[in-house]
Design a protein around this nucleic acid. Structure first.
Length: 259
DNA sequence: ATGCCAGGTAACACCTGA
């Protein structure tokens, strides 16, 4: 079985102890990380390698930054989306792990405030992601697109839809693009096994959101048909969110049977 | 309408996040 998890760590340097203990406890075969907030040169590569992982990063100073960790070689790495030429934001990395499995770590733009240039950037970025995913699926390879999509797909995926009515994460334009990407033929791993409302992957640091379970579901694992055929389980690992110095996100995971 | 936390940068305040 290959266990794949996505986790927005909100600074890999601030979160290193949490990440190392999670790797030790949860033992993912592949970890897709977002919001590294540091450049490749200062990513704590040796510590992660000592935990048994191969590492590929696409970092950036202060903001964004994505990585792929695997208990296998990591090959054929793509950094950035096609069409990112004028864009210096590090939000996408994709590579082959375990010989033939393609995985992507995605940090989709937040887009607030909306309307405005940040929201326009989010929508344009989603259009580029759509075009890229479409091309990937045409290869008929096994693909897992995981990450912080910064989209709340349904009103049931947030503790208060009313409070998020004007937020970029719930706008019809954001949801329509997320749906369009899924409708290319992707399967939402979590929703294959868990149809309950109010299943969250993010809780704000403010206002006791974690204690009140005032959360959002914005981290998703989307599987190509070839990956979905091998899907054996999926879930949310809430343990890391309750620990000291936690990220505001918690890992979402899925398991694929070996090919 | 704004701050509430948290992290990074840089400088002892401001930006970004969701």
């Amino acid at each position: 079985m290959i266990k794949i998890a996505t986790w927005n760590v909100n600074s890999i340097k601030a979160r290193l102890p949490n990440v190392l203990s999670w790797l030790e406890d949860f033992q993912p075969d592949v970890a897709l990380l977002q919001e590294l907030k540091t450049v490749d040169e200062t990513f704590p590569r040796l510590e992660i390698e000592d935990a048994g992982y191969t590492v590929e990063t696409h970092g950036q100073k202060s903001y964004n930054g994505v990585a792929i960790l695997a208990k296998s070689r990591i090959e054929d790495v793509r950094r950035g989306l096609p069409g990112d030429d004028e864009d210096d934001q590090a939000r996408y990395i994709e590579a082959t792990v375990f010989g033939s499995l393609r995985v992507a770590s995605i940090y989709l733009p937040n887009g607030n405030p909306q309307p405005g240039p940040k929201f326009d950037y989010k929508l344009a970025w989603m259009d580029r992601l759509y075009a890229h995913v479409k091309g990937c699926l045409e290869t008929e390879e096994t693909y897992v697109f995981g990450g912080d999509y910064n989209v709340i797909p349904k009103d049931d995926d947030v503790y208060s839809a009313a409070k998020f009515k004007d937020d970029a994460l719930t706008q019809p334009e954001s949801r329509a693009r997320f749906q369009a990407i899924k409708h290319l033929g992707l399967t939402d791993a979590l929703r294959t096994y868990n149809h309950n409302p109010h299943q969250y992957s993010y809780w704000d640091y403010q206002g006791g959101a974690w204690q009140k379970d005032n959360g959002l579901l914005i981290d998703h694992l989307l599987l190509s048909p070839e990956a979905a055929d091998r899907l054996q389980g999926a879930g949310i690992d809430k343990t890391p969110r309750g620990e000291e110095k936690a990220s505001d996100h918690t890992p979402v995971w899925c398991e694929l049977e070996e090919s």
